[in-house]
């Protein structure tokens, strides 16, 4: 074996590392983004009351069957307020949105929907965040794209904006319909 080649190995290794780190820097890999464990998996089952009626219990089968967005929201969440008009517009354009009211107060949530309009076809009341935990939710807002089979296709963290919907999310939704 050529001896000079052996001495070139460290150089090659360092160059490769520069390549990897440089790629991460330039391509803008987001270290904060947490992958969703649910992508490609069925939506977990639950038994929780409806926001509007504490005696009406809902489960997975009550909401699945058609493609939908499952939106985690709460009145304590600032960016949910920012996202709300976008959801209203999406619902008006025929997108089916299911709400999960996450770790919230029922009265406050109902007041919010009364004041800012209600984009949700059904709203699930999850005061302890049990369903949120099974969904792997880390905060609000979060939106799951669920197909007609009830499988999660995509998870989006943070508020949806018009721009984001047009650029990226609409295509994901259209693929499910």
């Amino acid at each position: 074996m050529n001896k000079k080649l052996i001495f070139a190995i460290p150089l090659v290794v360092v160059a490769a590392m520069f390549g990897v780190f440089g790629y991460a820097l330039v391509s803008g890999v987001d270290p904060k983004s947490v992958p969703s464990a649910l992508t490609g998996e069925p939506l977990p089952d639950f038994k929780l009351s409806e926001l509007q009626d504490e005696k009406a219990f809902l489960s997975r089968d009550d909401i699945t069957g058609e493609p939908m967005l499952v939106n985690i929201w709460a009145t304590w969440c600032g960016s949910c307020k920012y996202e709300h008009p976008v959801l209203n517009a999406l619902a008006a354009s025929g997108v089916r949105i299911i709400g999960i009211n996450y770790k919230d107060d029922r009265a406050l949530a109902l007041k919010w929907l009364d004041e800012y309009a209600d984009p949700y076809e059904v709203d699930v009341y999850d005061p302890n965040g049990d369903l949120g935990f099974d969904l792997g939710v880390t905060g609000a807002p979060e939106t799951f794209f669920v197909d007609s089979e009830g499988n999660v296709q995509y998870r989006f963290q943070g508020p949806i904006t018009d721009q984001l919907w047009q650029d990226k999310l609409k295509a994901i939704y259209d693929e499910m319909v």
Partner: peptide
């Protein structure tokens, strides 16, 4: 925990 929040 890994089932819900991945290896992260």
């Amino acid at each position: 925990m890994v089932d819900r929040y991945t290896e992260f």
